[in-house]
């Protein structure tokens, strides 16, 4: 798992724009509150959206897989037919993560997470990273949160442009 620490909102926006540009060449999944779930789709439809649009999928197989994944991450599978507004912060995070995961990306980029997670939700978030953390995960967050990350998870600190030129060749 890699973390890229940034100073300012402007820097964060520049990084996202660069990643968005790169996502035309390399498959990237995003988990960010500024990229919301589609409000008129259910959780299930949101998760299947990118993979359903780009790949040929069998809906029935996907539904079973998504149910299994939700159970795996301790999220109640009854949310499958719920809408965005019915989800709590952690459920929303998992749904966005699964949306990205089923898209089969090279990397899943988590952006500015600690802005939203506090208290019990923060504990769940770090449990998730400790248990399921992967080489495919890249977190972009502000410098100010570095001590919280250091205390909770093991990670490799990288510089944004170095990572982009080295790992996102396309």
């Amino acid at each position: 798992m890699k973390i890229i620490f940034l100073e300012t909102l402007r820097e964060l926006n520049e990084c996202y724009n660069k990643l968005n540009e790169k996502s035309r060449e390399v498959r990237l999944g995003f988990v960010w509150d500024r990229l919301p779930l589609i409000s008129n789709l259910s959780v299930l439809e949101n998760i299947m959206l990118p993979s359903g649009y780009h790949d040929s999928i069998k809906v029935k197989d996907m539904v079973d897989k998504i149910r299994d994944e939700l159970k795996r991450y301790n999220v109640n599978e009854n949310i499958l037919h719920a809408r965005r507004n019915d989800l709590d912060t952690f459920q929303m995070f998992i749904v966005k993560f699964l949306q990205a995961k089923f898209y089969n990306p090279e990397y899943i980029i988590f952006i500015n997470l600690l802005n939203l997670f506090v208290g019990e939700e923060e504990r769940k978030l770090f449990d998730f990273f400790r248990t399921y953390g992967s080489e495919k995960f890249v977190i972009l967050d502000y410098n100010g949160y570095e001590s919280i990350y250091r205390k909770n998870i093991k990670y490799e600190r990288v510089e944004f442009y170095q990572w982009v030129t080295r790992d996102l060749k396309g």
């Binding site: 968005n20 035309r24 995003f30 990229l35 919301p36 779930l37 589609i38 409000s39 959206l49």
Partner: peptide, 25 residues
Amino acid sequence: AEIAVMNIMGEVDTLNAYNIDPVDY
């Protein structure tokens, strides 16, 4: 109203992030 709200809420950005063409989808 639906398209206007989707623009304001950033849902069209989500589609763009996943290379989903808004014209197509």
